[in-house]
Design a protein around this nucleic acid. Structure first.
Lengths: 222, 222
DNA sequence: TTAGGCCTTACGGTTTCCCGTAAAAAACCC
DNA sequence: GGGTTTTTTACGGGAAACCGTAAGGCCTAA
């Protein structure tokens, strides 16, 4: 089993549980330096361990970290922490433990960042954590069974999202072509904007723009 | 200190941490029946303990519970659990432990349900839990210091929210007076709907309805 | 009772949105 | 190159939203 594991999690209540699993159920010894509450410290520990010749084998991290009151960290989220960690030590295994319960996010992290497991906080989280760590140790990838598949019926292009964004900030459709041009995103006419909006609305069965905005906000598309 | 405490929390990772605090830091003994993963079981335990002449002194509960795959519970959220518990045993103390980090929610629960403490999951949660339980024991009410004050610049009436809701489901303004009438909510003319929308937009500095919807969705007002 | 607020409603004009159709441009395929 | 399809754009009519102003109802106080 793993000998050296680092936990990056800013909520003590969650951190404690993970520690408990590792120590009591998996018999992994943790020292006081093996769990941290922010990304910067986490990266520091990983680099130091590497220098000392005792690199971490596994990083267990949350995705979102609350902003801190005093200083602004250079890394403020789990995604960037994972990238930075892999840049320093490409063979480190990564388990993400987050409230975000979306299969698409998990898939994306596996594909683009090469994480080894995704466990959403939820009804089966402790069980999942145990299985996930065991799977990683065997060289396998673990995705929790209760990741929620979202019923996305339309896939938004970057242009679509940009248009929705602008609408949500109060821009009029008529102004949107100009805005897009200024943002160096795309050079399209008003009719194209209308067309895309129409396409989105009919695909998602929205009768007008306000409903479309509501839909997108609800699913965190924007 | 408290002798008999019940924990209602559906995420094992959170439940374990709370148990740890109670047992290790506060020296409160818990049996296997003192923590449960759904509201119905929680209420059952409270009633049984009352019948047996050993009533619970403190209920620690989450607010949101994930829907379960198999059966649909008769109580599916912490709010209703608290109401039901107080109906059975009016002197039970209640501590709410939830991810919701809004001072307004905490205040509302203190005022309307008479809860004794509110601790948001977050950076200081374990510390807060300890303090909160101690405070409750002394007969005081505890509100975590890091509850986020929201910068609400407008307070939405029920009518306002209903109008926004309807707009977000694709209704036209023109149809809204009829809808409100059918919902037995209010009997208002179209002009009043327009006026309320105008008031909300100008108060929140939104230039049109889509932006207003985005604003409300973003802050979970609807 | 009457005058003055305050709120709601009615209504008209302007702007924006929505949805067609048709022309123009671009891409594609021999 | 010519010819076809697809995409993009332009434009116009009708619907909805937006924004005034004026008129009506209701309460209060003199």
């Amino acid at each position: 089993m793993f000998k050296k594991v680092l936990i990056a999690e800013d909520y003590p209540s969650a951190s404690i549980s993970v520690r408990k699993i590792l120590e009591e159920d998996l018999q992994i010894k943790l020292s006081d330096t093996d769990y941290v509450y922010d990304c910067d410290t986490a990266l520091g520990r990983i680099k130091k361990a590497l220098r000392d010749g005792e690199p971490y084998e596994l990083l267990i991290t949350d995705l979102s970290f609350d902003e801190e009151a005093n200083h602004t960290p250079s890394i403020d989220n789990g995604r960037d922490l994972i990238s930075a960690a892999k840049a320093s030590q490409s063979d480190i295994k990564v388990l993400v433990f987050s409230v975000e319960n979306k299969a698409s996010i998990a898939r994306e992290l596996v594909n683009n960042l090469g994480i080894n497991a995704y466990v959403p906080k939820g009804r089966r989280d402790m069980q999942d954590l145990k299985e996930a760590i065991a799977d990683i140790y065997k060289g396998r990838t673990f995705l929790s069974k209760n990741l929620r598949q979202e019923e996305r019926t339309y896939d938004f292009t970057e242009l679509d999202k940009a248009i929705i964004q602008l609408l949500a900030t109060g821009k009029k459709q008529k102004e949107i072509p100009d805005c897009l041009k200024k943002m160096r995103l795309k050079d399209v006419g008003l009719s194209s904007v209308e067309k895309r909006l129409h396409q989105m609305r009919s695909a998602l069965d929205c009768s007008n723009n306000p409903q479309l905005i509501a839909y997108c906000k609800e699913r965190n598309i924007i």
